[in-house]
Design a protein around this nucleic acid. Sequence first.
RNA 1: GGACGGCUAGCUCAGUUGGUUAGAGCGACUGGUUUACACCCAGUAGGUCACAGGUUCGAAUCCUGUGCCGUCCACCA
Length: 908
Amino acid sequence: MEKAYQPKEVEDRLYESWEREGSFQGNPDPGKPAYSIVIPPPNVTGVLTMGHVLNNTIQDILARRARQKGHSTLWLPGTDHAGIATQTKVEQQLRKDGKNKHDLGREGFIEHAKEWRDKHGGIILKQLRKLGCSCDWERTVHTLDADYSEAVLEAFVRLFKNGYVYRGKRMVNWCPVSLTALSDEEVIMKPQNGKLFKIRYELTDAPGEYLYVSTTRPETIMGDVALAIHPEDERWPKLKGRKVRRPLQPAEIPILADSAVEKDFGTGMLKITPAHDPLDFEIGQRHDLPIIDVFHEDGTLNELAGPEFSGMDRFEARKATVEKLREQGDLIDEEDHANNVGFSERADVPVEPRLSEQWFLRYPRVEEAKRAVAEGFIRYFPERWKKTYLHWLENIQDWCISRQLWWGHRIPVWYRKGASRTDPENWHVSVAGPDDPENWEQDEDVLDTWASSWLWPIATMGWPHKSAMQEKGLDYFYPTSALVTGPDIIFFWVARMIMAGLEFKGEPVDPNSTLSDEEIKKRIPFRDVYFTGIIRDAKGRKMSKSLGNSPDPLDLIEKYGADGLRHGIMSIAPKGQDIRFSEERIEQGRNFCNKLWNVSRFRQMAEDDTRESSLADILGRIDQNQLNQDDHAILLRLVQTLDEVDRLYEEYEFNSALQAIYRFFWSDLCDWYVENSKARMKGGEDKTTCLAVQDLCLRQVLLLLHPVTPFITEELWKVLGFSGGQSIQWTVAETGEEFSIALRNAGISLDASALEEMLAIRELVTSMRSLKADRNLASNKKVEFVYLAEDEKSKVLEKHLSSILSSVGAAALSRVKEAPSGMPTLVTDFGSVYMDLASGIDVDAERTRLSKELEGLGKIISSIENKLSNASFTEKAPAQVVEGARRQLADNLAKQQETEEALNALKN
RNA sequence: GGACGGCUAGCUCAGUUGGUUAGAGCGACUGGUUUACACCCAGUAGGUCACAGGUUCGAAUCCUGUGCCGUCCACCA
């Protein structure tokens, strides 16, 4: 074995063999319980980020643990076509070549985009392999695959037939760069420092009298069709029925009252521009006002804005209109104003509220979706996201699902040629299209990407075709066991998948019906949802491409190994808390693997013969009579650890699980047990038993770690001979109870008191080391000690004598009947321990040390005494606690006395 | 404006239902190559648990309020 673990060779070799052996295949197996996860499909043209590393490592841990436990496990991978993002990239590419999409035409463009996708896409799936992800690659799905696309259209058609989908001219969020509508969820609100302009509008029946309006968007004044005031505003009675003159593109416009106007904001007077503001649009509807749209689709002003402004960009026009108003004397005031402006998620420009014909979806099964989570049929980890989810559903708005793009699923609606598109009589809605296509033209738009990915759990498993569903095991694997994703897509994806599952899984039901709880449980797409935190850099900033603060995971794998990266990232990822990334933690992950490697190497050096050791074989090598207190103690700790880690895995507490493993492995096993066993391994009669105990510990540690660090554990599993020909992938770590039973069946019983005894011995060793270190004695410098203790304590001490000597680096620790003088003294639970220094001691230094010691003891003692002298404490606190305090007091008093004696001895 | 999360050692974080003297890793400092590992071992220093009240025999932990940082939601132009 190499001196240091070399991950690269091991990882490539093992991954290849796992894949070759079909370890990752997820096939329905009625004889086994099912476990399934669908991957949150990454953007097909994306590359692996730290976020993906976290997310997919968690999924891999879950999948690998399920396999170990004997579940038939499916982790289904795939990619998303990512409508706007991909189309934008492809168009950019075209532009570099001096072309645009219209040069290619719709079909040509799609062909081109597909080629581009196939060339640049799918990289991320290769990268996931490097990370060790155990996806069933044969089942990789892409949202634009033919089967999947059909499912998307089928869902649209069914929703349409059930009255959930409608077409309408409504206010939508318009991206003037991507030239498409967006859903509310794709709009990011950003605080902006703008200006609030105060404008005057002249009353037409009273020249020289004005009304004042505050606005942030003077460039839309030409679209004003009214002014509005709150009906309870005292000015209203005087204004009712009167009119004002619009200061740009002059026209007479009415004054009206609407309670949506805030009396106390600005001048209490609102200009109504129905074409360019959602609230104004609503008010306009209520009052039957006309709509004047003064913008083009790309955010420039059109001819209705007047010749002066026509053709200008909206922000340019803002300046120009302000200038014009100033010239006219209509600009009264201008002040700094902070407000929130919606930005397009992709193009990062302010969205424009815009009136347009779009397809909308009224969400199905909203009430059932709430119940599914509120009642815990779907469990959220951490639970607090439940509230966020429910709040969104309480206030849910219809979903604009049409996008003015070419890259995506084209809406399966056809309009009769030459007829009015607004009349449903002229619509044909079906997956296959009309029989006489020559008389129809298909809707130009495609569906929002999320309107395809919301079907992910069912459409990847054959829906809607019965035979495909059977073949792919929909009924076997669905509901999937767990979903692992970020809380940032709780609305985009999680909530929508729940509604899609409820609506589409199982037999179609009447839209007016309500699903029973039983039916809900069958239809939900997943049982547990684990929300990861967001990975931030050392400064706490979100990792992003634009900031360039995200390390390339592949570089990290190269440097630290996939296992190191996985271990590192999982050890810093508390459940649902944001994660401060630091490369040092990844380094620690690598170090951990190296430690595991080396202790295994040490184990290998002890014996030359290669063995095949099943659990029973190892247990068979143990001779109960040869078990010493160390053995009892480490096995007791092992049982504890097995239970603890199992519980923590079940609760998705991965970092705590790793910490528990770390404590047992590094501290208990390596630092203490293995160190102590070195003497025994020289060839004492208990050597075999001692090695068997090591094997037990290593075996269980490998099993516990395998989900997190699959490569090194599989490699060592074989090297150490635990495999019996079977991969570690198919072997579960026994629970503490199962392990205890196995021990009992092998005739091994553990002394429960050994653990406490061992901890006391450790404490003694630590103080003795410290005493040496205080005097700058090298740890390998053999020093002689004597001690003074009661018979009982002495017995225990003698039992551990050899390991104490080697751990401390002591030549002797012998019992004396009387306190020696002039030696540094330790007051311990075992009595007083004295260090014999040939060179004599520094009396002053000793005195200082002991005085400090006494001071500490004094503080502790008085605090306990205070507590115990408090009558209400002794009366009200549980007897156990009071008893504990008494014992503690007695112990400390004894120590205090001994320390005082030692101090006095120094004075002589 | 509403909701949620965080605030514990220089840094990153643990701290289970309130109960001995608040822990770990990293970093710092000191010493160390004894039969695995310097990607290592031993030891030391370092904390008014954000702040203010309250409940309790007892609070890092429960309650109320405040501050700072972060996230999400929201039609004050």
